[in-house]
Nucleic acid binder design. Structure first.
Lengths: 150, 150
DNA sequence: CTAGGATTTAGAGCGTGCTCGAAGTCAATC
DNA sequence: GATTGACTTCGAGCACGCTCTAAATCCTAG
């Protein structure tokens, strides 16, 4: 699952002023690889098209970077690419579909909440197993081996 | 991610006595498909080999079913197949490697905890977005459209 | 004995989300 | 003007975790 490691800005921001930044710089700032940035665009996650220079190079502006970061947040909660694309489409369609966007987000939140609960539950089980091993190791050379089990 | 829907036992358990159950029955009881049961075995997740009939059919006993269920729990927390295999190997190697098992489980728990925290954090962000949409919709026909944003 | 359904194996196929490669273009520097 | 390196597109490749197929075998009922 795509590691996101945005670098904190240092220095005077490479030619940021009114021109936007290169894809390499966007990658550095969002923590998303240039490959993935282009992939996200191809995949339709980037609703509002990123600007281009005369020569065809992408120029990322603040709003683009923020959108990308939002995408990474949604991904980090397990939202599939397809769903993010749908959301991007709604957003790019402009005003009038806020109910739909809200429904999409609420549906996702419900799923995330359900998964969280499930993971927490199963984590409890793992914790118990850990406790068993800890106990077994504490009492290691005590009696001649505990019960079988796993 | 593999849906696990174990069926609650009903009735007198189809020929359960001292013979173990068929793969179909094991699938029903664990909520794992027969395909996946075989796949898990091939993949080395099932340390202690499942018994076979004279004719070569698998017979699942209680302990086998419990192990499978454990695998589903580990999977549900995101443990990769590889790691479960490693764990299975340790378990099948018998006594003497409890430290290693413990370390494996603790490492996994740490990862799960970290992911949980991350998801919770990002979920908060989504919640805020939901609130924004809710607010916007509440005040729908109020002023002529809010600020742009996403 | 036979039909039919469950099970076996090995291997192929698939969905998802990246990740990479090739071949060509752009742009800053010497 | 030439070199060099970042950038472009587009398609292929990859890792993961299943999921399915084919052809053969087993086993139970009739």
């Amino acid at each position: 699952m795509l590691e996101v490691n945005p670098q904190p800005e240092s220095g005077p921001a490479p030619s940021d002023q009114r021109a936007g930044v290169s894809i390499a710089e966007a990658a550095r700032r969002t923590g998303v690889s240039v490959h993935t940035l282009r992939y996200y665009e191809r995949a339709g996650l980037v609703a509002m098209p990123v600007g281009r220079t005369a020569g065809g190079r992408r120029r990322y502006h603040q709003i683009d970077l923020e959108w990308i970061v939002l995408c990474t947040r949604l991904r980090a909660t397990g939202m599939p690419i397809k769903t993010i694309r749908r959301y991007a489409q709604l957003v790019s369609a402009g005003y009038g579909n806020e109910q739909e966007r809200l429904a999409l987000l609420e549906a996702h939140r419900a799923e995330v909440a359900a998964r969280l609960a499930e993971v927490r539950e199963n984590l409890r089980l793992i914790d118990r197993k850990i406790d068993v091993y800890r106990g077994r190791l504490d009492a290691d050379t005590a009696v001649g081996a505990g019960p079988d089990a796993e």
